[in-house]
């Protein structure tokens, strides 16, 4: 059974008739130029954006799922995380348990261990560096034990080491039986970690499928308007403007 499917998803002026499907164990890269509708699509899939069409999560209509139940199955990691208050790292991670109405000590401890943030639990989150914060926001989502993890440009503004760590954690979530949909701008990094792709252009799906099907030089030229050199056989894969 598919983990999540979108049928003719539409948001006036933003998204047009988007079809999408993801199975458990897969990591789907959502790519496309700025303003192509990646964030809007992620919000609709998370159940917090108004839209036409239907989203089915594990066989159930997302719109009819009670909000708590929806939030237990889908974790959303928005583009720019921030905390309005000077919260401690441990309190931020614990917020991930809100949909469960419990402390979830085990899940919280596991999320802290996975993301490697155990050393700063009593630090104020606003005093951490950008890369450290990114792992804290991810730990918050993982503490909620979602089946499906939606991440909106989680590695923007991170250095190489943190980029690899965060992408590795997302890949691990998919490998352990969950699903991940991640919006990315770095196509080479996406090609290295994702096993499915969806290329958006002006709110429409230009191509959807395996890396080889989507990351073709013709597709990228048509959508980004730039000549791109693609070598998916290389280790790591190369996707770079000519």
């Amino acid at each position: 059974m598919e983990l999540i499917t979108a049928h003719r998803l539409a948001v006036p002026g933003r998204l047009h008739e988007v079809q999408l499907a993801l199975s458990a164990g897969q990591m789907l890269g959502l790519i496309g130029p700025n303003g192509s509708g990646k964030s809007t699509l992620l919000q609709c899939l998370a159940g917090i954006g108004r839209h036409h069409g239907q989203v089915v999560l594990e066989g159930r209509d997302l719109q009819r799922l009670p909000p708590d139940e929806r939030a237990r199955r889908i974790g959303l990691l928005p583009q720019a995380g921030h905390s309005a208050w000077a919260l401690r790292v441990r309190d931020v991670v614990a917020l991930g348990r809100l949909p469960w109405h419990d402390q979830g000590a085990e899940a919280v401890a596991r999320a802290i261990e996975l993301t490697g943030i155990g050393a700063w639990l009593d630090e104020r989150v606003d005093r951490l560096s950008g890369g450290e914060q990114a792992r804290v926001w991810l730990a918050r989502v993982l503490a909620g034990e979602p089946h499906l993890l939606l991440a909106d440009e989680p590695i923007a503004s991170l250095d190489l080491l943190y980029q690899r760590q965060v992408m590795g954690l997302l890949r691990r979530h998919a490998d352990s039986g969950g699903g991940v949909i991640v919006a990315l701008h770095d196509l080479a990094l996406a090609a290295r970690y994702c096993d499915r792709f969806c290329l958006l252009d002006g709110g429409r799906v230009h191509a959807c499928g395996t890396p080889a099907e989507v990351l073709s030089e013709a597709n990228l030229l048509a959508v980004f308007g730039v000549e791109v050199h693609v070598d998916l056989a290389a280790r790591p894969p190369v996707v770079a403007p000519r």
Partner: peptide, 17 residues
């Protein structure tokens, strides 16, 4: 109030109205 510390979008995604 707890969920809103991380912003409206996160609060909504955690099932809060």
């Amino acid at each position: 109030l707890a969920g809103l510390s991380l912003g409206e979008q996160v609060a909504q995604s955690m099932g809060l109205n």
